Simulated scan of single mutants.
Amino acid sequence: MRMDFSIILPQVRACLLGGVLASSLMVPMAHAKDDAIAKYENEPITPIPLTVDLDRDEVALGRDLFHDVRLSKDDTISCASCHPLENGGVDGLRFSFGINGQQGAINTPTVLNSGLFFAQFWNGRAPTLEEQIEGPTHDPKEMGSNWAEIISKLTQDGGYIKRFAKLYPEQGIARETIKSAIATFERSLLTPNSPFDRFLRGEEDAISAQAKEGYVQFKAYGCSSCHQGVAVGANMYEKLGVHKDYFGTRGNITKADFGRFNVTGIEEHKFEFKVPSLRNVAMTGPYFHDGSIETLHEAVTIMAQYQLGRTIKEQDVENIVAFLESLSGELKP
């Protein structure tokens, strides 16, 4: 049977033409997106990765341990007690409370994105998340426990025994495996896809005109000299009160105020702290290591005075706050 090509040729031509038109439209669109991304690739802030490669079973185990009150001496406090994930990874208190209603001496930092931080705690005394876990579990004012007690409790849980045996067949439930599971879970707590990150990836309309202006001013005033990188901070130490005596103004100096000095014993490290991450900062008040500042507006104003030696105009403060609010990302369940 002969096929009448005169019937299908117009359709073929139409398909080919459509394909050419589509490809001609797609190429400029692709280039436009690439150009938009390239436009911001040299910015001081970089987007949080959209995915993280971690063992799902270990993350799930770590999540359960993170929420398990049996890690505390009297079975009343879990990691999540001071770091509720639904609240930006902080409890919103100036100072958190541990076992027996004891109050801590320093503001609780967020656990979100902590896997991106170059050190843990305000004074940087723990270089890794694994080492950080030793602190709250053993601090008498926080969870007040020890590894012998913790392991004894967890080994009475048949579910934990099976899960640890599967993940760590040679060690089972042990100090290092508990720390590994919790730290792996904490590394999963990234908050990608914030409006600002989407903006950096080429979505020009992801943030408001005010937030864009705020970002320009954030850089122009010098805020990004300390708050930069993927975590927008948390990658260096700085003295609180570079241009003005913060502690002299505030008064009532405590041991916690000595910051890095408490770790190194070096005099010049007094009043020096890890620069906090500004990721999700709109959710993590009150602010500063002493939890003395309630609002972002006030925090920006005070930081400008004490760290930059500048007075920022009211409108500029509002613009910078709008930018900071655009740093709130998405925490996957």
Rank of each mutant, 00 (worst) to 15 (best):
I173R: 15
Y160G: 07
P44G: 05
R201H: 09
P127A: 09
I173A: 11
G89H: 04
K313H: 14
K153V: 00
A234G: 11
I8W: 11
E131S: 02
L129Y: 00
N235T: 08
A206L: 11
S224N: 13
T264F: 09
Q171W: 04
L9E: 11
T110L: 04
A256F: 10
V216P: 00
P49A: 07
F121I: 03
V232P: 01
L167W: 06
G285R: 13
D55R: 06
L17Q: 04
G159S: 15
D197P: 00
S72N: 10
I150D: 12
S225F: 06
I106H: 00
A299N: 07
F271R: 15
D257V: 10
D197T: 00
D68A: 06
T301I: 07
D34C: 06
G62D: 02
G265N: 02
I106C: 02
E86F: 03
A322H: 09
D53V: 01
M303W: 14
G202T: 03
R163D: 05
I312L: 14
Q171H: 13
D4V: 11
I150V: 15
K274Q: 15
A211I: 08
L308H: 03
I99C: 09
P276F: 08
D205V: 07
G202S: 08
C79K: 14
I133Y: 00
E330Q: 07
H289Y: 05
L331M: 06
P136I: 07
T311M: 03
A32P: 05
T177I: 13
F288M: 13
K332N: 08
Q120E: 13
S78C: 04
S23H: 07
P140M: 10
L154R: 14
P47S: 09
V232D: 06
F66K: 00
M1Q: 12
H269L: 05
N100Y: 14
V300R: 01
N107C: 02
A165Y: 02
Q132D: 02
I99N: 14
K332Q: 10
N252V: 04
E142Q: 15
P127K: 09
E142Y: 03
S114H: 01
G229Y: 12
T46W: 07
L93N: 15
A36K: 14
K179T: 13
P333E: 09
L296P: 04
K270C: 11
L17R: 08
A183T: 10
A126T: 12
E58Q: 15
E131P: 00
H83Y: 06
K239S: 04
F118D: 11
F261R: 12
I207C: 13
G19W: 06
T184A: 05
F121T: 07
R310V: 15
E272S: 13
N100W: 09
Y221I: 08
N113F: 04
D290S: 15
F273Y: 14
F323S: 01
F118S: 12
E43W: 01
V242R: 14
R250I: 10
V59Y: 00
E314R: 15
H67F: 02
R56E: 13
M236W: 05
L21G: 06
E131T: 06
